[in-house]
């Protein structure tokens, strides 16, 4: 009995947190979109963002499951730096493939495993994989991700996980868990 009450209050708490996060997300987006901090703008934004976040259930924003620790913010910056470096690398490598007359590809579908638990962490991982050298997430099933790889490095699960997932996971692990 006591335990159930505790569980319920935990649920309401996480529900409230989700609504608050959605409100912050929508409100910030609205203010940036308008590019002004006039009273009318802020007022309309607050009312609309509040009603949307109150009316909706189960949503996801960048803040969902985010760990609000100083370390998480610092790691977020590192993650962004790593991400843009990988995006650049992905494009240059792709350019080399596309521009060489022989079209040196060696494609295949591999399976990798992630240790991330939170949905937002997994979603960002899948997105990051898609934008990094030669890989494209095609399906997520729980902890398993199926990835299309333009030039296969290795086809076994552990090796592919190390090459594709590990780089991003270390950052997302700290940010979302």
């Amino acid at each position: 009995m006591h335990m159930r009450m505790e569980e319920n209050s935990k649920k309401t708490q996480s529900n409230m947190r989700q609504k608050a996060e959605l409100f912050v997300f929508l409100f910030v987006f609205w203010v940036l979109l308008n590019g002004s901090v006039a009273f009318a703008t802020l007022g309309v934004g607050a009312v609309v963002a509040l009603s949307i976040s109150m009316l909706s259930r189960r949503q996801m924003t960048f803040l969902t499951d985010f760990r609000y620790s100083p370390k998480a913010f610092w790691v977020t910056l590192q993650y962004l730096g790593f991400f843009f470096k990988e995006l650049m690398k992905a494009n240059l490598r792709l350019a080399k493939i596309v521009l060489s007359p022989s079209l040196p590809i060696n494609p295949g579908f591999v399976k990798v495993r992630t240790t991330l638990k939170s949905p937002m962490g997994r979603l960002l991982l899948a997105n990051s994989i898609t934008l990094t050298p030669g890989t494209l997430t095609i399906e997520m099933e729980g902890e398993w991700l199926y990835v299309h790889w333009v030039s296969i490095g290795t086809s076994d699960v552990e090796g592919a996980t190390k090459q594709i997932v590990a780089g991003f996971e270390q950052y997302l692990e700290v940010m979302y868990g």
Binding site: A90, P107, H148
Partner: peptide, 16 residues
């Protein structure tokens, strides 16, 4: 040569 390669190219180059 195939749809998956094209999707890869489409995703990466257009983003950057």
């Amino acid at each position: 040569p195939d749809s998956f390669g094209r999707i890869q190219v489409g995703a990466k180059t257009t983003t950057l």
